[in-house]
Amino acid sequence: MNIPDNLYYSKDHEWLLIEADNGTVGITAHAAEQLGDITFVELPEIGAKIGQGDELAVVESIKAASDIFAPAGGTVKEINTELDNAPEKINSDPYGEGWICKISAVDEAELNELMTAEQYAAFLEEKD
């Protein structure tokens, strides 16, 4: 399973890339695989203020609809509108073109709640 080292991970299988105090959010390869072929992503609104753990987006496949929770709080400043036409990018490139949104002003303290790649790998193993 692909679990990049440079990201933070939540127990709900979201990843977070931190650049300065900006964060990019997506779902992990494991989550994408569990959901199967993704058919639709309900993106958040730009400017929405969200707290850590709040509902951020919804990812739909044929047999499931899954809430995506914010791995960290902040303000939504960019959304991946490419997903409107090509939601399958989450399956094909979950850590790249399949990103969901970018949030600004992430509180560093909240990162302590998240896992490192190594911890997430162990977390997945334990779940199995």
């Binding site: 058919t39 639709f40 496949s61 044929i62 047999k63 499931a64 609809a65």
Partner: peptide, 12 residues
């Protein structure tokens, strides 16, 4: 478009 429906989305 069944992800809208109760048997998948339940309370949502």
């Amino acid at each position: 478009l069944q992800a809208r429906e109760q048997h998948i989305r339940r309370e949502k």
